[in-house]
Amino acid sequence: MMQEEAYIRERPRKWKDFLAHNLNLDIRKYKRNLKKLNRGGLFLFTFFLILALFPSLFAPYSPTERFIPYEAPSTAHLLGTNDIGNDILSELVYGARISLMVGFASASISTLIGLMIGLFSGYFRGTPDELLMGFTDVVLIIPKIPLIIILGAFLHPSIWILILVLGLLSWESIARVVRSKTLQIRETGYVKSARCMGFSSFHIMVSDIFPNLIHVLLPKFMLATASAMISEASLSFLGLGDISMKSWGIMLSFAFSRGGFIRDMWWWYLPPGICITLCVMFIALMGFGFEGREKENGKRGVDSE
């Protein structure tokens, strides 16, 4: 009897248990760790956000103040100075604002465009859907970075143009996701009854469909922010950024072109690189966290509160 009970208990072992026992790979533990990482991501991202919002609290000097150039790290200048004698730590702190602003502003533009196109396409279906999704496919296959380089070369390099270009060229995946979710929500009873009761399409889209898209949009927005920050850094490194507004990408670019690498001044080129990596990683972690929560909600049924 006891043996049989043990056997019954043993039976419902899942593939996760199999992995945990045989390959020492515990998925559940990994999931728990991922949750911790998400929380950590949120915490550290908040740190960067505070840095960006109140740089004067953390930066020892103004980013334009000049000291002796090419100085190594010391107690006066924790990360040394650059070619024109600016304090690198102060530049780094003030650079957070520019990098995050580019990331968030262009992600807002792309999320807004993606939301409108996806919502319209999924709700109305038929010809508008085919036209809009056809257009989305065309935008999807355009190689982004080469196009931005060409645009950046022709247009006056400015941070606003960079934000606009990055925003206008990265909405396709958001539009696709929003469209598929809208198609799903459109067939639910509450949308069908709203249509039946005579609510306008605009009212249904804003009041019934949009609130149910937020869980999809939020992770997409975070991932778009991370991706825009990387694009900004790449473009700035290639010399297409706005040199009057020093972002982390511009700092890297200057370190490369003005002797930071040749003189092996790691305190000049490593910190902005590390900051970009960490910030993008934290934002991505938050995005994955929101995405995971959405999946769990999907399994349980939407929890309204």
Binding site: T188, Y190, K192, C196, G198, S207, D208, P211, G301, V302
Partner: peptide
Amino acid sequence: RKVQMMFQDPTDAFNPR
């Protein structure tokens, strides 16, 4: 207004949010 429809699944008859 005059012709309405009531659906099969009561759980999605109202917006969950």
